[in-house]
């Protein structure tokens, strides 16, 4: 299968005022997405997943690494080429209330990328805007509204319409439904799936919500402290997590139908600061299975099954399963 998006060895550091050591937000990440497929990128806030997404679009300049989009070398592009490339790849942001200008009518929001990237006449832009509204299942009259008159779900549809205006091949969806009310979330996800089916767009789907990622992704990569610690087919990674962090993360997800008592894997403490990272596994300071060789070098991804890898030194010997803590009492209605 042809790889549509292929990034290798992405590193992104930020310098921090008052500290000589830079923050290593992304610490050597590979991302490969076949054309028309979805890679789900999971991890807590601060794990570097949004930074990876921005590096793929070159909204941020990676410190190290390569990014290829089809046959194009994105990082080698000169400003003018990059500007034209931006029509091929777009981003949908997390919070549609924050990312849309409150003083602009929806029409201007949707037509703006057409003005920047195409030479369509005003009448053709209007037709395209109306077409985009049908594509995202809104009415044409919504174009004459202001952002505050629409629901979060409707605004996110506008964000998607805007991203689609120039017919991109690749979309980075950065937590597109995290700030939406539950009642409209499924509608937006369903819309994205249909758009991918109809238009063949490649998605990087960034989210901390495991249910959403499971529903959307072909493959899943789990990030922790700037490193991909596990990746593979979505059903494999989410159904049979191998890295201790993935195991703890999945066991902490709260179902709306808690069955009796929940068994949980507990990680003590919290993620250390990405400044001055110690060598070795990023989870070493919290992992109950830690041993000496964990602290020596960042473990590579060890193969669990075909296409499924986990960066834990215990994987090859099969001693990587976290002890279950619990059962944790569940509150039942009295």
């Amino acid at each position: 299968m042809s790889e549509h998006i292929e990034a290798r060895g992405i590193v992104k550091t930020f310098s921090v005022r008052g500290s000589r050591a830079p923050v290593r937000a992304v610490n050597g990440v590979d991302i490969v997405i076949p054309r028309g497929r979805t890679l789900g990128l999971v991890g807590e806030s601060g794990s570097g997943k949004s930074t990876v997404g921005r590096c793929l679009l070159r909204l941020l300049e990676p410190t190290e690494g390569t990014v290829r989009h089809g046959e194009h070398d994105v990082l080698a592009m000169k400003p003018e080429t990059l500007r034209r490339h931006r029509a091929r790849a777009a981003m949908v942001f997390q919070d549609p209330y924050e990312s849309l200008n409150p003083r602009m009518r929806i029409r201007s929001v949707v037509e703006e990328p057409l003005m920047l990237h195409t030479d369509l006449e005003p009448s053709a832009r209007r037709r395209r805007a109306a077409e985009l509204m049908r594509l995202v299942r809104l009415e044409e009259f919504h174009l004459d509204r202001f952002p505050h008159e629409l629901s979060g779900g409707q605004l996110q549809r506008i964000g998607i319409a805007r991203a689609l205006a120039t017919d991109p091949e690749f979309l980075v969806l950065d937590e597109p439904t995290s700030s939406l009310d539950l009642s409209v979330r499924a509608g937006v996800l369903r819309l994205l799936k249909r758009l991918q089916r109809e238009l063949g767009i490649t998605f990087l789907f960034i989210s901390h919500d495991l249910t959403t990622v499971a529903a959307m992704s072909d493959e899943v990569a789990v990030m922790y402290l700037g490193t991909v610690i596990e990746k593979g087919p979505a059903a494999e990674v989410l159904g049979n997590p191998q890295h201790p962090y993935s195991q703890a993360l999945l066991s902490a997800a709260l179902s709306v139908d808690p069955e009796g008592r929940r068994v949980r894997h507990v990680l003590e403490g919290e993620t250390p600061s990405p400044v001055d990272l110690p060598p070795g596994c990023p989870l070493a300071s919290r992992c109950p299975l830690v041993r000496n060789d964990c602290r020596l070098a960042v473990p590579p991804l060890f193969e669990v099954s075909e296409g499924h890898g986990a960066a834990c030194v215990r994987v090859p010997e099969g001693t990587n399963v976290l002890p279950a803590v619990g059962p944790v009492p569940i509150v039942t209605a009295s």
């Binding site: 299942r137 809104l138 629901s151 539950l182 009642s183 409209v184 509608g187 996800l189 709306v256």
Partner: peptide, 24 residues
């Protein structure tokens, strides 16, 4: 009912999409 249903949503693709009229 809509909320509870959405919380168990599995994105069944046979469900037809409707125009979003969720204006607050």
């Amino acid at each position: 009912q809509a909320l509870v249903k959405a919380s168990r949503e599995t994105l069944d693709e046979t469900v037809s999409e409707e125009t979003d009229r969720s204006e607050p």
